[in-house]
């Protein structure tokens, strides 16, 4: 009887695992091999070039500037998103109307990245865009500019779109975590005279820290990507003057425009290890004493 159950389980598990191995694991594995070749994408006649592709990476000015931009995003996007999400989650606790806001925050999560990018492109477009129109409306027309066409602002504009699209998910995540804090702890703190700010820093935040930790990892990964938004929204894309270049875009261009699949795979491998290292570091750095509830 028991034996039959395992057979059933194995039968149910095998097809998805097989699909996963063929369509996810094997391309990953192949990328590792291709990173050491000069594969051009169409010829099966490839040469092993050793570490050549990787040494090239460190003298490729575009890749290095992409690395810097991803680095900046890595600092800004998770911090701002988590701060906003915590604020929204904490401030929409009471009342039906306020709770309805959580649904609103979640809306961007339902849109595909491509749609988000196109929408934000319309927000930033100079002559009829929402942002310039708004600035005009409140009498700040001197601040109007071609947002995505100025190297100083373009990357920040992309980050704003990224944060906008991500924040809703974390509002819901944090809200759920906050709900699970037992009411007696909060009440006890209130009786002891804690104000809302103290309550947040001393009670709420430490008790949802697990969720915040997870959020840091997820958002870090999002910040290391950014390909779709940059590809659709920005001048060039990646511009103006490479001011929004990200690693994903460099990788894409080298593979699909320049036909340098080997070199692009090397970028992919570098990105893989960066993400892995980052995840480990984030989890280490944000490790705290775990508080057991209940």
């Amino acid at each position: 009887m028991r034996h039959g159950r395992y057979r059933f389980l194995a039968g149910a598990m095998l097809p998805p695992l097989l699909l996963y191995a063929v369509f996810v694991v094997s391309p990953y594995a192949q990328a590792f091999y291709l990173a050491f070749t000069d594969f051009n994408g169409v010829s099966s006649d490839v040469r092993i070039v050793g570490l050549d592709n990787f040494t090239r990476l460190w003298s490729d000015p575009l890749f290095l500037s992409a690395l810097r931009h991803n680095g900046l995003m890595l600092v800004v996007v998770p911090l701002v998103t988590i701060a906003l999400a915590l604020f929204f989650a904490a401030s929409t606790r009471g009342g039906r109307l306020l709770r309805a806001y959580r649904v609103l925050y979640f809306f961007p999560q339902l849109l595909s990245v491509a749609i988000i990018a196109v929408l934000w492109q319309f927000v930033y477009t100079p002559n009829s865009g929402l942002l310039n129109g708004f600035l005009d409306g409140i009498g700040l027309s001197t601040l109007e500019r071609s947002w995505l066409a100025e190297p100083r602002f373009a990357l920040w504009c992309v980050m704003a779109a990224m944060i906008w699209s991500a924040v809703g998910f974390y509002v819901v995540l944090f809200a759920a975590a906050i709900e699970s804090i037992p009411a007696d702890i909060t009440e006890a703190a209130l009786i002891d005279g804690a104000g809302p700010v103290t309550l947040f820093w001393r009670i709420t935040l430490p008790l949802v820290w697990d969720s915040v930790q997870v959020a840091f990892v997820y958002l870090g990964i999002i910040a290391l990507d950014g390909f779709a938004l940059v590809q659709i929204m920005t001048v060039g894309p990646g511009g103006p003057d490479n001011s929004t270049e990200v690693m994903g875009l460099s990788l894409y261009r080298n593979a699909f425009t320049y036909g340098k699949y080997g070199y692009a795979s090397a970028m992919g491998v570098a990105l893989f290890f960066l993400t892995l290292t980052l995840t480990v570091l984030m989890l280490r750095a944000t490790r705290r004493e775990r508080v057991e509830l209940a």
């Binding site: 694991v25 094997s26 594995a29 590792f32 594969f39 490839v46 997870v214 480990v280």
Partner: peptide, 23 residues
């Protein structure tokens, strides 16, 4: 979220087995 050693090893094995696929 720590990568388990098993997944890494599995990847390495797969890499050698499938290395010739795309090309």
């Amino acid at each position: 979220a720590h990568p388990s050693r098993r997944t890494l090893l599995l990847g390495a094995v797969a890499a050698t087995a499938l290395s010739a696929c795309a090309t």
